[in-house]
């Protein structure tokens, strides 16, 4: 079943169009990744889906509903959560209050249980539940941002560069979390500059260049596409200098 269908999407800032006629579709239970260089329009794409930027043309259909005209708080209420770039935790609020804010759209009695589930997933957050989020390390803030989005029980989770600026052990941790979430049946749209790891976890992938989708396919097939290897995996440059690229082996990848 298709969770999100985007067609003919155009969007940008003022009179500057950043996205030109973008089409993307996401099936339930999949990890879909969008890779692209800095300035390709990845963040604009996510901001447009979540309602922070109004699309100038095109349709965004989420679970059968048109959402391109809705304000962001209504879109969250429908079950689409964005974890913004740069770990946008509420730094002056405690870890616990951040997680409670994650449940802002909910009013059912299971919220406490879902917060406990986040603490089980990221035990370091349980230790620091009463600390201000601004005092956490970058990796911990990213875990909090993801945990907070999960408390909303989204049917689609959008992640904007979750590995950006993190220490390698946290990057591994974040990608492991994405695999866990997928095995739990969650649907994820992942935007990344870390193309290799993103393509390794993704069921399907899109390449965004200067506001246009230039390639799409399964994560694995894009990993083996020469254009992708050259531009995003940096293999040609290395090869031409006679350097052998060590390939990452990650367990559990089909």
């Amino acid at each position: 079943m298709t969770v999100l269908t985007i067609q003919g999407l155009r969007s940008g800032y003022g009179r500057i169009e950043v996205l030109h006629d973008v089409a993307v579709s996401i099936e339930r239970g999949q990890i879909v990744t969008l890779i692209g260089a800095n300035g390709a329009g990845k963040t604009t794409f996510l901001k447009t889906i979540s309602g922070l930027i109004r699309a100038t043309a095109g349709t965004i259909e989420f679970e059968g509903k048109s959402i391109e005209c809705l304000p962001p708080h209504k879109i969250v209420g429908l079950g689409l959560s964005l974890v913004p770039e740069g770990r946008a935790v509420l730094k002056r609020m405690t870890v616990m209050d951040n997680l409670r804010m994650g449940a802002f759209t909910r009013s059912d009695p299971d919220i406490a249980r879902d917060i406990d589930a986040v603490f089980d997933r990221f035990p370091v957050l349980a230790e620091r539940w009463n600390q201000l989020a601004g005092t956490l390390s970058g990796g911990e803030q990213q875990m909090l941002a993801i945990g907070r989005a999960l408390v909303a029980r989204p049917s689609l989770l959008l992640l904007d560069e979750p590995s950006l600026g993190l220490a390698p052990k946290f990057v591994t941790r974040i990608f492991q979390t994405l695999r866990d979430l997928k095995s739990e049946g969650k649907t994820i749209l992942l935007v990344e500059q870390n193309a290799r790891q993103a393509l390794q976890v993704a069921d399907s992938a899109y390449v965004l260049e200067r506001g246009k989708i230039v390639l799409s396919g399964s994560g694995e097939s894009l990993l083996n596409t020469p254009e992708v290897q050259e531009t995003y995996l940096g293999q040609r440059a290395a090869r031409s200098h006679g350097i052998r690229i060590p390939t990452f082996q990650v367990d559990g990848i089909a």
Partner: peptide, 24 residues
């Protein structure tokens, strides 16, 4: 309270608050 937290979240960052479902 929930509304109190929403006020604090809005005071910190309108965009983040909106992305959590707060009608800023």
């Amino acid at each position: 309270t929930k509304m109190g937290r929403a006020i604090r979240a809005t005071a910190e960052n309108h965009e983040t608050a909106a992305l959590l479902g707060v009608n800023v």
